[in-house]
Design a protein around this nucleic acid. Sequence first.
DNA 1: ATTACTAGTAGACGAGTAA
DNA 2: TTTACTCGTCTACTAGTAA
Lengths: 218, 218
Amino acid sequence: MDSKFTFALRKIAMLGGLEDYVALSSRELGDTLDMSQQSASKRILELLDDNLITRDLGARRQRIKITPKGVEELKVEYYEYKKIFELADQVVLHGAITEGMGEGGYYICQPRYMEQIEAALGFRPFEGTLNVIVDKEDMPKLEIVRGSTGHRISGFIQDGRSFGNVIAHPAKIHNVECAIVIPERSHYSNVIEIICQYHLRRTLKLDNGDRIDVKIKI
Amino acid sequence: MDSKFTFALRKIAMLGGLEDYVALSSRELGDTLDMSQQSASKRILELLDDNLITRDLGARRQRIKITPKGVEELKVEYYEYKKIFELADQVVLHGAITEGMGEGGYYICQPRYMEQIEAALGFRPFEGTLNVIVDKEDMPKLEIVRGSTGHRISGFIQDGRSFGNVIAHPAKIHNVECAIVIPERSHYSNVIEIICQYHLRRTLKLDNGDRIDVKIKI
DNA sequence: ATTACTAGTAGACGAGTAA
DNA sequence: TTTACTCGTCTACTAGTAA
């Protein structure tokens, strides 16, 4: 799609042509597009040719409306921008609550981890983690998270058992501050573990299978 | 801003040039912009000239990063799209034109009301209101409007008669800016009164019984 | 491989103007 | 007033090619 077409389409949308016919002379369009009346008229004919707008050519003033195809074109650009600017500072993962493996909760609740988490994130986690199965289509976004810095929580050895480094990424679930924790040497997994100051299941009344959004700052 | 500049800028952003330098040859950029290597090279020079990108011209591959000015340009477009597509905060009432009761037109045209309306809505209403009988099935939507904030137009007492508070909700009929006005202490009614800068009946060629859509921002 | 110059050309634009 | 044609100009593109 030629950028000058979507540019014109966007301006028509801003003038109200998205949902309804809008009275719009070629001179007016030319003014908003910063071009002559003649060129705007030509642009309108091109948009008509490409089936991006329809037009009701009245006696005095034409009325223009964007077609469903035109709306789709605009949405494509809109979603491009969304991707650009929402990926810039946060990633939103969609998924479903699942039962904890037991493992993660025990793991992260070691005092040596807890102290560091409190220092890094500003809260002392509730004992236990909330586990979320990330939607398949959001796995690339999870990889972005894995690739980002986060806060490193150093590992240690205790009672002959080795606890590895963990990366904590600050996040929010329904505006509740939390963090997702990922072992530094993690294998590929579609389950993420979330720690929080509060008991998330109780606070947000979550049950297994419930769907949630996890917003992660990166 | 020329649309072809923001187009190129957007593609560079999608390739990762928003936050960091991204290795991007003129041929690659040409491919994503659907133009020749030569034109892409020229486009890069133009963007540099306009201070929209900076560039680290290494021995083998140049690396490109969008400047703060370039980010601003992109954000302007992003917010334009947001405005276009998130105008979904509206209620559309369907109904039919009816004869004014006379009452409303006299009521709202009091200068004390008019001044406030002009200040709140940005237009001085034409004297008289357009009355619309709202479809029965849209009455729940009308209740949503009544429940929303709107602009309060304060009442007053004049010539021993009391004029109560009125709530004005900005609206559009076929893309013409207007507002529906509802007395704060209104009884249940399926007729709404609409004020507008223009004579709506004449401007939109409306007769009693004609059906219209009223889009109300909430 | 790159980047980017020059030269030639297609097409985009605006002025004039008709309907 | 509109919309939109023709036509001349000038810009924007690509091909060829140098560095």
